[in-house]
Nucleic acid binder design. Structure first.
Lengths: 221, 221
DNA sequence: ATTCCTATAGATGTATACACCTTTTATTGA
DNA sequence: TCAATAAAAGGTGTATACATCTATAGGAAT
């Protein structure tokens, strides 16, 4: 029986994942005292974590009220996806790092897992694969600034996509198989630019799916 | 005699400007207790400000040591400028807001001030104009995410450009006049895409000047 | 002389009491 | 009955004492 050691970094990731996985849906009010009690520490380090989450636009801290999980209106969601499309196009342009056999192997493993997912869907497994794919591709990005932006926008839009993934299991899983198939092929060809454009396309497909499901009148551009 | 009211926002801007204007050159060690004493508050809100600066990559907080103003190696500076070029190209593409006569007037005023600067250079005046131009253009950006990235990269690279501006007064002031002339023209034409490409070009010119002055072997791309 | 260890000064990290802000509820007056 | 107001509850913001970490200087052993 080991006592779990909570570092501020691990608490940050825990809360971020709870927000992304809709354990804390938009509008949820988080209280510093409650979180402090849960993790067995004082409010001080909790506040530091909440400030980091606020910088990532996942929560808003309101004096005298609490820390509120942010929601996105149509315009903001549109802005985020618009930028993600453009950032994807830059992945292959801004001197990506060399692709290795390891990358190829990682993608192949993920593809196998995704294929199993089509018949036996599990939200948890879906997100593990999705996150792993994101990490793999982010690691290819050579420009450190682009990598930061890419990463932040992923987590900023993740929960709205998760909502859709929970609704349309089959189609989403099939899309993931298609995406990972293409990514695997691109990695085999050592073609980072192809990886970027594949990302761009599937982000666009995902956004279209999101708009169709939630609000048909959402402006495209 | 009014007692100055220091809010965390104003302290953030103060410290950010000190870093950008090289009052705190790279490597400077900031101590929370000293800053707290200077602003007449406790360490707690100072720590919040330093965390914000750390998130903007302007400082690094090291346990037991202090808060150190970051330096940039050639690769990082290169990454930042590479991204700024690409972000500039997006200004006119991602649904900018409508240009108004006010924008035109603001640019005209800045141009006049820049012209005076050529003969009577003042670092402080240079930076006021530069910041005002930045604010004007950032405000044209329609996509909120792009605006955030644009803003952060400006402040992240500002001090290295300031170093160069302090060295080559005349040429830099002349460049500012040229830039504001073109921006004024573009605003008159209500052409946000032109504004973006003008920014792209002058960022590229500035980067070239920087590389020539500091390290001729800095890789271009 | 050099290396290693230890003590110490001084920094950030954490816990906690208190101040202030926001919201809600209850009460009082018309 | 309703509106205005006050008070209370419960949240974040701040100040401060203490814990812990880091770098350095000095002394002891080799």
């Amino acid at each position: 029986m080991t006592v779990e050691k909570h570092t501020t970094a691990s608490i940050f990731e825990t809360l971020r994942d709870r927000i992304c996985l809709l354990d804390y849906p938009p509008g949820t009010v988080l209280r510093e005292a409650e979180l402090a009690k849960e993790f067995g520490i004082s409010r001080t380090p909790i506040r530091a974590v909440l400030q980091r989450l606020e910088h990532g636009s996942l929560v808003t801290v309101r004096d005298g009220v609490g820390t509120i999980v942010t929601d996105l209106n149509k315009a903001e969601l549109n802005d985020i996806y618009e930028m993600r499309l453009k950032m994807a196009e830059l992945i292959g342009v801004l001197s990506p790092r060399e692709i290795t056999p390891d990358d190829e192997a990682t993608a192949a493993r993920l593809l196998k897992r995704a294929k199993r997912l089509v018949d036996a869907y599990s939200p948890s497994e879906y997100w593990q694969i999705n996150h792993a794919q994101h990490a793999l591709i982010a690691d290819l990005i050579g420009n450190s600034v682009l990598r930061e932006v890419w990463d932040q926008l992923y987590f900023r839009s993740a929960r709205f996509w998760y909502q859709e993934a929970s609704r349309a299991h089959v189609g989403v899983a099939q899309d993931l198989v298609a995406e990972l198939s293409e990514v695997s092929r691109a990695l085999r060809e050592r073609d980072a630019m192809a990886v970027g454009y594949i990302q761009r396309n599937f982000i666009a497909f995902g956004f279209a799916r999101l708009k169709a499901a939630t609000n048909p009148d959402l402006p495209i551009s």
